[in-house]
Each structure stands twice: as C-alpha cells, then as structure tokens.
Design a protein around this nucleic acid. Structure first.
Lengths: 204, 204
DNA sequence: GTCTATAACTAGATAGAC
DNA sequence: GTCTATCTAGTTATAGAC
C-alpha cells in the first residue's frame, strides 16, 4: 500500500524526491545522506533539488511532517470504527502495526531522524507525535473509566504499547515467517491480556 | 552505576574517549559526530585520538562491542539468580530496564548506530545481539515447557518484550515523575499478565 | 602521548545559463 | 525545471616533530 499522497500513477518530481529521501534516510540516516546522493539516484543534479526544496533541513521536515499527518489521520479513522474501548484499542493496535509493517522505512525514520530536526522544526513534529500518543491514551482512559481495563499508569502503558508495536518495523521482514496480520494478532493478544480486567483476552 | 570498565577513579584516556564518544553519538549520531568534536571536548587534538584508535569505525565498533558484552554478562548474571521461569523472566526484565534507565546513552546507541558499522563489524555485533535475545527466548521457552507461560510465538514475544522495555530509554527522564524501579514494576506487571497462564482456555 | 601541518576529499548551497 | 561551475567549509586520516 502506498501512502495517500503517492497514489497518483505519475508521481511528481517533488514526490519522487520525498520517496527517495525516505529510502536513503532509512538506509544511512540524515547526516550520512548527501543531497548529491538523493539527486544522483533520481538522475538529476544536486542543484536541481534546490528548485523543489529550500534546504536539506527543509526536506527532512517536510518528509517527517507528512508521515506524522498520515499516522494521525489513519489512527483517528481506525479508532472511530470501534464502539467499545476494547474494540477501539484493537483497531488502534492494528493500524499502528500495519503502518509499521507496510511502511517500514517511514516508520523507522519518524523516530530515528528526529534528533536532526532544528529546534523549531522539532517542536512542531513533537507536537504531532504527542497528538498521536494522546489518541492511544484517550482509548486507555476510556477503558479504565468503563471498568474494563486495569491500567495503573496510562502514560507508561501507552508508551509500552506503542514502543512494542513500533519496534516491529525494526525486525519485520516482508517475506519472513509471519505476515503482518499474524504479527498484529500476537501483539493484540499480548496487550489485551496484559491490561484487560478479565482474562478473556487470551481466548478471543 | 557506572559500567564496569569505567569504575576506576582515574579513567584512562582511552576510556575518556569512549565515554565522550558515547555521549556525542547519542546526541548527534555517528556520521554527524566528527573526530575533531570528540577530541575538542577532551581538550586534545584530533590527531591525538588516532594514537588510541585506528579509525572512527574502529572506535564505533569498540564502543558497541563493550556495551554488548556488558549487556550479555549482566543479563546472564541476573537470570541465574531466578529459580522458576517466572522469577527468571522478572529478573531479566528488571536488568534490561535498569540498564536502559541507568545507561540511556549506551542503550540508545546500541540500536541507533548499528547501521553505521562496516559489514564485518556488523556481523560481529549482530551475533552478540542474537546471543542476548536468545537468553530471553530460553527463559520464555522454559516457562512454556513448564506450563506456566502462554506464549504462542516465543520469538515474536521476546521481540515485543525487549522492544517495549528498550523503548524506555527514549522517554525515561532521570528526574521525571517516575523512578526506574516504578517503571520496571509497571512493565513486569504488564508483561506477566500478558503471558502468564492465569485462567483456562487461554490458548487460541 | 600529544602536537602542527597538511593531503585528499566531500559536504551544503548559490549564480546564472538555457 | 534542470544544467554547469564554483564557493566555502568541513571531513577523515597521515607525517613527522617533540
């Protein structure tokens, strides 16, 4: 599945640059990826890249900002489909993991390259990351208030759940032993059994 | 707690270089950390650094290799203290989290800088990482065989547990709301409830 | 063990032609 | 929108003095 802004058959040059940037940032990271290398991979000269983006920092921000928008939009949409806190949580976990298996490069750099953002750009991305985490925390809180979740610390639990699933992008292999859906089911099971008040999570 | 090779009151120059390297790699990453910067922070010239290490790559490998040794040794020692699978798992989680809260920089770079190792150096570090993961997997397997753990996929479960706890180093703040022990307890609880066979019909 | 000096190279970014 | 050419500054690493 391609990201929504990349679904056009003929990707614009700006979009080609973004995709190549994501690929190379994933492979080598921001500092080790030169503007020249991005350009060379697209068969243009590095100076041409500056027609589309103001600076390397600008390109980093643009890429990360779009990934965050995609994440937030997708999570909101997924959670909205659930009725109960348990359904909402499962939907959230499923979305989070499928994003991390389907877009490994995007998911990886959305964490690893944060420290290369300028102070102001970091502030803007950190805000969106907080919005994303808060959706999870809200679902957990609803479950606690409804008396179905046993979560002593919503923030720590949300970090634990997010990081466990986020980590999938570091080991998941497209052609590995398990498919994305199996991986998602294992994680749902582990998490639900970890936080549900009854132990019905195990035999859903 | 300091790492064992750093307990001497007068750290050797090589050790000072390693500590500064860890600090700067954590802050900026390998490619963005210049040999000059490491040297400057120790009030020596960059050329002097080459007396102690052959190359920047050599320094990266040396630092990561020692971190892996410390992790493996510490985990083995912790697990050996437990009698039952459950005790062993709690000991393993406690060690893993305390390492990630007490040595945030070391823990962080032991993942983030892997991709900057040369092919041969990567192979050597990856082997040690595998050894570390296998200790966790062995404990989980013992629990399954003893009939106390409900873990449908030992590998995925080990990754989920490790990554959940590993992630602590990315958000844990020394002077934050929670101490390291509280964080560890919350994670132990979440994991144990997630995998313990507490009721019948837990299998899928 | 640390220094000065420097070689050989690569980086981000811009000017101006077409 | 892409090119050539170039500026300035930074990079790893080495040679050889002390």
């Amino acid at each position: 599945m391609a990201l929504s802004w990349a679904t056009e058959e003929q990707a614009s040059r700006s979009e080609q640059i973004r995709q190549m940037t994501i690929h190379l940032f994933h492979e080598k990271g921001y500092p080790a990826t030169s503007i020249r290398a991005i350009a060379k991979n697209l068969d243009i000269k590095s100076s041409s890249l500056y027609y589309h983006f103001q600076s390397k920092q600008d390109l980093l921000f643009d890429v990360l900002d779009r990934i965050m928008d995609e994440l937030i939009q997708g999570l909101q949409k997924s959670v909205a489909h659930g009725q109960t806190p348990e359904e909402k949580l499962v939907a959230a976990i499923r979305f989070h993991i499928s994003f991390h298996t389907d877009h490994q490069a995007e998911a990886f750099i959305s964490h690893s390259e944060l420290r290369f953002l300028s102070a102001e750009n970091f502030r803007r991305i950190a805000e969106k990351r907080k919005r994303y985490e808060e959706i999870f925390q809200q679902v957990l809180r609803e479950g606690v208030e409804a008396g179905v979740f046993n979560v002593p610390d919503v923030k720590v639990a949300s970090y634990a759940i997010l990081l466990m699933c986020t980590g999938v992008s570091s080991w998941f292999a497209e052609k590995g032993r398990l498919g994305g859906e199996e991986v998602a089911r294992i994680h749902e099971d582990l998490i639900l059994r970890g936080i549900l008040k009854t132990s019905k999570g195990g035999n859903r």
